[in-house]
Design a protein around this nucleic acid. Structure first.
Lengths: 231, 231
DNA sequence: CCCTGGGAGATTGTCAACAAAATTGTTTCG
DNA sequence: CGAAACAATTTTGTTGACAATCTCCCAGGG
């Protein structure tokens, strides 16, 4: 995989207004599931759909391939990359390391304002879960992790994490729909917030690792369930 | 940076014989220091030098930009990316996490043959250091880490590590020339080999982390030395 | 009926020429 | 003499067309 980044990758890819716009639009489309995994991305179709020249579409596809979101096959063009459950587990294992590191660093550098913001997210999360607003809960989840990355002030790990997260977004989504999943993850998030806000780096790392380990377990469970399909 | 991979990235970039050849040749040239950091890479020059069309050179440059090896500036073309010492430290911090994980996994899965191969590399390293063959020692170092990655059988971390390592290769090189550096790193490598060969995952992770922490310390020292230039 | 082969259409890979922007060099004016 | 404006060159960004390859459909023979 070529890990890449929400929009601020490793500061590498071309940043023309035109080029970047097309790339981000295609990227968002893939991340929002408008193109199914393994689906072919026909350049001409994309040109028409996004009103861009084939040149721009092509460079955008090349960037996205570098981010690992799509794959190229010689003379067969681009397909959206289908991340297997096994790969998703591997990615989450790496995320466990990096996010744990980020959480610890965030705990070391937390300010009063940041602690307050974290606690606010934590409260909002509980409210969202209790009222069954799963998509809002998911958005808060993204915000929590983003805030921690920002607090850690560690560009490399932040960029890698954004890239890795994008690759597993589909699995994250299906996981979030599993009944009772939010009930499991909510206390984990609350533990992370408590540790970081308290400035306890070791506890923060442990809590974050426990959280992602639980994600890995859930993924592995699904991998097993897929082998023996539901009734 | 957009982390990428020796040649097998996240399985993303185009793999045409022609395109990949140009990309790898330019990549090797940059890694071998034939182009200085911040140096402009003129497309026409590269075309002539590598005997390729501008189209191929351009796609190659785009791939390398995605790997973080070069940077694009709108209407100003490509420059080889200058990785600051601060960035090198961040990258090595992430490597510490990933390589530690890889070492632990390698220890869990080590076979008899692999243990023997590791010990052989360890012996060769000592011989190389004692006879002052620094470049051979460096090559063995690369082989050791590559073997560990292979043993760990963890694609994602392997690919990320290759990408990260490429970005810091220049710093690694200057570091290896510091007098007495090999005397410091040799016992660390021996400790890693011993732990992995013995199948002790925890010790392997600790040894690897200690090794890379020492690299970070050496880098930070240089960062400080650079602020107060040598006499 | 099935399998093989060929051909038409679709799709991507590549190239060469053109346009836009930046860089460099030169001239002119204060 | 220095600085700003202008012109020439270099370099990159973009476009459209062409060639190579793949895909799909259909016909013919076994």
């Amino acid at each position: 995989m070529n890990v890449a980044f929400t929009t601020g990758e490793m500061k590498a890819q071309s940043n023309d207004p035109a080029s970047v716009a097309v790339r981000e639009r295609i990227r968002e489309a893939i991340l929002h599931g408008e193109y199914a995994p393994a689906q072919r991305l026909i350049e001409a179709d994309l040109c028409e759909h996004f009103g861009a020249s084939r040149f721009l579409v092509r460079t955008a596809l090349q960037d996205l391939a570098a981010q690992g979101l799509i794959e190229f096959q010689r003379n067969k063009g681009a397909r959206v990359r289908a991340v297997s459950l096994g790969e998703a587990v591997e990615i989450t294992e790496v995320r466990m390391l990096l996010e744990g590191f980020v959480a610890a660093r965030a705990a070391e550098r937390v300010t009063e304002d940041e602690a307050a913001a974290l606690r606010q997210i934590s409260r909002d999360m509980r409210t969202a879960v209790e009222s069954g607003e799963l998509t809002h809960y998911s958005a808060l989840n993204v915000r929590l992790h983003a805030l921690l990355r920002e607090m850690a002030a560690h560009r490399i790990s932040a960029e890698l994490l954004e890239q890795l997260r994008a690759l597993t977004i589909r699995h994250q989504f299906t996981l979030s729909l599993v009944p009772g999943r939010s009930a499991v993850s909510l206390p984990q998030h609350e533990a992370i917030v408590a540790a970081v806000a308290a400035g306890d780096a070791e506890a923060a790392e442990d809590a974050m690792r426990a959280h992602l380990q639980s994600v890995i377990d859930a993924l592995s469970l699904r991998a097993h369930a897929a082998a023996v399909p539901a009734v």
